[in-house]
Write a protein that binds this DNA or RNA. Structure first.
Length: 468
RNA sequence: GUGGCUGUGGCGAAGUGGUUAACGCAUCGGAUUGUGAUUCCGACAUACGUGGGUUCAAGCCCCAUCAGCCACCCCA
């Protein structure tokens, strides 16, 4: 290589780019995202959940084999520097199972867990669907009760109500009841794998009744009469938009287990209705309010293998085809792969980044207005003085930025304006000598002069508090 | 894995075969060295994803390829 080529090689820039499905977050968006996380945290802590954290990287054997083959394929995996086979967590549930099994003696059951963290899935991207995204999980483990089901659902439901969604629908299904229906409809034994049937039923929303009938007809052993009746049961809605449970109950008569599950399910729904509203009218799909609706929809199956009781998913009313922004359900024995101790639980997850993508699409993301003052340093001799002012403000809880281009005061004002500071404290030689400061209102352009340094906290606080 | 669409300076975006590839944003300088936003003037930028082909001539047409987005599958 000639010297010239070597120089050229050195000057060649790496093209700045991101991996597919991985997002950068600019300051304005990041602040909203953090605020959302904090709000979710706050709601969960209020409801008595305890926050935990687990590593992003786990042994591969911990992560694999719990969901389906499909999900196993999506796990980001590699060998670490010590030759260990490791993977990035695919969700927060499986690491939680490991966590619970590992820390049984340190936890008090029933344990109410909150966890907020990023997860990774090597699948194809779509709108609101990334390869790295944040999940906010709530679980109650160590108890199997309708109260626990409700506690998790209520907290998730009420948290989503805090956001400017324009309305959402929380749909409740039950894997257990659905399985009983399928068993009876198709005359299947207890141990028959229903997965293909469940997957077909789960598409009811997308491909319609006839589409599902066609799909199910291809599955051996199912008569069209049986299929038709099952779909009738699932599709029949009462005036409130709920799956009509009366014919379901009579169809399952004699199945004691299923009947008991139905009783429990109805009790759960009554509890849920106590904190929610029902179906909104077609004319006014609750766009003005951010409230949610609660519905029974027995056709919900959810893909993940481990759900056994109640299951739920949540869609935005304004973006019906967008996908679920919050879902979960009950599982019999979360940690069975890690311990002999039986640990039933119920949990759900808010897909924060999908929710944010949805709100962004709708133009409903909150705009964050920074509430901070700015100290402009006009002359170099006032650098220490300006910093003393900034430090005083910060110690007293007043957010403030400071000019970093001492001397070039025009630049400092321009910068303060661009980052949205409503007030600028101005100090230079004169102010330094008299221990004073000027305060400029960036909106009106007015500048009041010669305030005493000793009053800086009070004056700036007062000024800032008048900003909307 | 399957389909559709899109790739033009840092970003957005015009350009439908014919000189020197618009414009806007951003950046930098000046009008204005103790005052921003607004206004005016000026400057800067290795830009047509990559590789072939057709043509006298390609950002534009054809083929391939890569990347991204959207949709299916599945899912938060």
């Amino acid at each position: 290589m000639s010297q010239n080529e070597a120089v050229k090689e050195k000057q060649k820039k790496i093209e700045p780019r991101r991996l597919k499905g991985f997002k950068d977050h600019l300051p304005g968006f990041m602040e909203v995202r953090s605020n959302f996380q904090n709000l979710i945290r706050q709601e969960a802590l209020l409801a008595g959940f305890s926050e935990i954290g687990t590593p992003t990287l786990e042994y591969l054997e911990t992560l694999l084999g719990q969901g389906s083959e499909e999900t196993d394929k999506q796990v980001y995996r590699f060998e670490d520097h010590g030759g260990r086979k490791v993977g990035l967590r695919f969700d927060l549930t499986i690491p939680f199972a490991r966590f619970v099994a590992e820390h049984q003696s340190d936890l008090i059951f029933p344990f109410k867990r909150l966890q907020i963290g990023d997860v990774w899935r090597g699948e194809n991207t779509q709108k609101g669907r990334y390869r790295e995204f944040c999940q906010c999980d709530l679980d109650i483990i160590g108890v199997d009760s309708v109260g626990a089901d409700f506690e998790v659902i209520a907290c998730l439901y009420q948290t989503i109500a805090k956001f400017n969604t324009g309305g959402y629908a929380f749909r409740l299904g039950n894997r257990n009841i659905l399985s009983s229906l399928i068993r009876k409809s198709f005359n299947l034994g207890e141990d028959i794998d229903q997965t293909p049937i469940l997957i077909a039923l789960d598409k009811l929303d997308k491909i319609g009744t006839q589409g599902v009938i066609d799909l199910l007809s291809k599955i051996a052993g199912s008569s069209s009469d049986a299929i038709g009746y099952l779909l009738q049961l699932l599709v029949n809605k009462d005036p409130d938009g709920n799956t009509d449970l009366v014919p379901v109950r009579s169809f399952l008569q004699g199945d004691e287990k299923a009947t008991a599950e139905l009783d429990r399910f109805e009790q759960l729904y009554r509890l849920c209705r106590s904190i929610s509203k029902g179906k909104s009218s077609e004319a006014n799909p609750s766009t003005s309010a951010n409230e949610g609706e609660m519905h029974i929809d027995l056709s919900i199956a959810r893909g993940l293998g481990y759900y056994t009781g109640v299951v739920f998913e949540t869609t935005l009313n304004l973006l019906p085809g967008f996908g679920s922004i919050c879902s979960g359900g009950r599982y019999d024995d979360l940690a069975e792969r890690f311990t002999t101790r039986s640990l039933p639980g119920v949990g759900g997850s808010i897909g924060l980044d999908r929710l944010l993508a949805g709100l962004e699409e709708l133009g409903r993301l909150p705009v964050v207005v920074p509430k901070k003052a700015f100290v402009a340093i006009v002359t170099a001799d006032a650098l220490e003085y300006g910093n003393a002012i900034a430090t005083t403000l910060r110690k007293n809880g007043v957010a403030c930025d400071i000019g970093l281009t001492t001397g070039k005061v025009g630049l400092q004002f321009k910068h303060a304006d661009r980052i949205g500071c409503p007030f600028v404290i101005v100090v230079g030689t004169d102010e330094l000598n008299s221990k004073t400061f000027n305060l400029k209102n960036m909106k009106t352009g007015e500048e009041s002069k010669s305030h005493s340094f000793s009053q800086v906290v009070q004056i700036v606080k007062t000024a800032m508090s008048n900003i909307p």
